[in-house]
């Protein structure tokens, strides 16, 4: 299953998890051993609706599990509706470490928006 992460900069599997979502500089996805970086700087600078656009990007990328920081209500609704499972990750740790945490059951699933 394709997993997505919000990241502060592009170091592929070593990318640090970013605590924001719509305003995160980029995203990393992981599937079948392949790490891919998606730039989000244009969305991050847009005047409004950044969260929704970022959520749209995750949906378009076919992400099924998302690990990130703060997700607002609209982005949350979009990803939930698209059947994406959301987890609250550990910012500053790398996405690889966050993935291990998830596999060990250490990350809490997000059942409602935790930002605005």
């Amino acid at each position: 299953m394709k997993t997505g992460f919000s990241v502060s900069k592009n170091l592929l599997e070593k990318s640090p998890l970013d605590s924001s979502f719509g305003r995160a500089p980029g995203f990393v996805t992981f599937e079948n051993g392949v790490w891919t970086y998606l730039d989000n700087t244009q969305v991050a600078d847009s005047p409004s609706g950044a969260g929704i656009q970022a959520a749209q990007q995750m949906v378009n990328a076919g992400v099924k599990i998302f690990i990130g920081g703060h997700v607002g209500p609209k982005a949350f609704a979009v990803m939930r509706q698209a059947g994406i499972q959301l987890y609250e990750g550990r910012p500053a740790l790398s996405v690889e470490e966050n993935l291990t945490h998830l596999q060990e059951g250490k990350l809490a699933e997000l059942n409602e928006a935790n930002s605005f």
Binding site: G49, I52, Q53, Q56, K74, V78, A82
Partner: peptide
Amino acid sequence: QFHALVKLPDGVMIFPDL
């Protein structure tokens, strides 16, 4: 321009307040 509509795999989601 207001991102009031989002495309999902099975349809369109509308945020009326936007």
